[in-house]
């Protein structure tokens, strides 16, 4: 009976949520393993925040089931081992930063011995060490989000939910948050990252799920979700009739002067360039690599539910 693998950090089966006639979540099934950074992506209204609230017991599912760290959702004891930064982050403006963390330490039953040092460490981690004694009401939005991150990370939780954790941060703050997420992962905790910022997700996540209309449309390791590599070449002098001859390299498409080849072995890029030059084409630029997460995201969710700039 030894060496039993720990239960997944999150396991959701056919999780459903309706608000009257509106189906916010239409049977979500997914697994987040321990120690991984899991990116949860989707257009506005796809059900991302609803999912987080259901998993944390802040809202009740209409149907389906889920567990956190092996316990059914809503289990109070499990919440001691879970951290949460809400999308709508607000903390008592009349408390000092260290008092906010101390309040959460009280609520999670963190022992008094060593608490002061743990609070100081947490505030140091999120870059608020020098503001520990200041009232939250005097903080900028970005600083409040950093404080929320500190609250979520306090007590070394085994699972951390971060709902749009950099929405109020400047570029430097975003870099800091990415470093913090990697630190959490290095400690062995799982991170459920709900974000619109696809670049951010691409940079830190081990696995991602893309949701649309309350359902997962793609889930897996980042490499799998992004799909086969793609080569884009800016080329002049290439006739569309020549495309079938390029199919040996990959699936070819020509859009103006942009030639793309999907599913191509990147080792063969020089051969492709040589072949084009041989045909009398002039090569302006070559971009060999995978599609970005943003392109994949747009492929999967199409235009539905997107707002201008939402998937930046």
């Amino acid at each position: 009976m030894t060496n039993l693998a720990p239960a997944p950090a999150i396991q959701a089966t056919a999780l459903q949520k309706r608000y009257g006639r509106v189906e916010a979540l239409a049977g979500l099934t997914m697994t987040v393993e321990r120690g991984e950074v899991f990116g949860f992506l989707g257009p506005n209204g796809a059900g991302k925040t609803t999912t987080v609230k259901l998993l944390l017991g802040l809202a009740r599912p209409t149907a389906g089931s889920a567990s956190l760290l092996g316990a059914p959702i809503g289990d109070l004891e499990t919440r001691r081992r879970v951290g949460y930064l809400p999308e709508l982050f607000r903390y008592q403006p009349w408390l000092r930063a260290r008092e906010v963390v101390d309040l959460h330490a009280d609520l999670m039953g963190f022992p008094h011995a060593g608490r002061k040092a743990a609070i100081a460490d947490t505030l140091e981690l999120v870059g608020l060490a020098d503001r520990a004694r200041d009232l939250v009401g005097t903080f900028s939005k970005g600083m409040q989000q950093r404080l929320g991150l500190g609250v979520a990370l306090f007590g070394r939780p085994e699972l951390v939910f971060l709902d749009e954790p950099t929405s109020a941060l400047d570029p430097l703050g975003r870099v800091d948050v990415r470093a913090i997420i990697r630190t959490i992962r290095d400690r062995g905790a799982a991170v459920f990252l709900n974000s619109h910022l696809l670049t951010e997700v691409e940079l830190v996540c081990d696995r991602v799920a893309i949701v649309a209309k309350g359902k997962v449309v793609s889930e897996g390791p980042l490499d799998d979700v992004l799909g086969a590599p793609e080569v884009a070449i800016r080329v002049t002098g290439l006739e569309p009739s020549a495309l079938p001859e390029l199919e040996s390299f990959g699936t070819a498409a020509l859009d103006g002067d942009r030639l793309t080849l999907r599913g191509m072995d990147l080792e063969r890029v020089p051969d492709l360039v040589a072949s084009l030059v041989k045909r009398g084409c002039r090569i302006q630029a070559v971009d060999a690599g995978r599609r970005s997460l943003e392109e994949r995201f747009i492929d999967l969710v199409g235009g539905e539910g997107r707002e201008p700039g939402a998937a930046a």
Binding site: L56, L58, V82, P86, L88, F89, Y91, L107, M108, G148
Partner: peptide, 14 residues
């Protein structure tokens, strides 16, 4: 309304 309760009620607090 403000969202303060979100962080509190995600804790082991009935």
């Amino acid at each position: 309304e403000s969202g303060v309760a979100l962080a509190l009620l995600a804790r082991p607090l009935r």
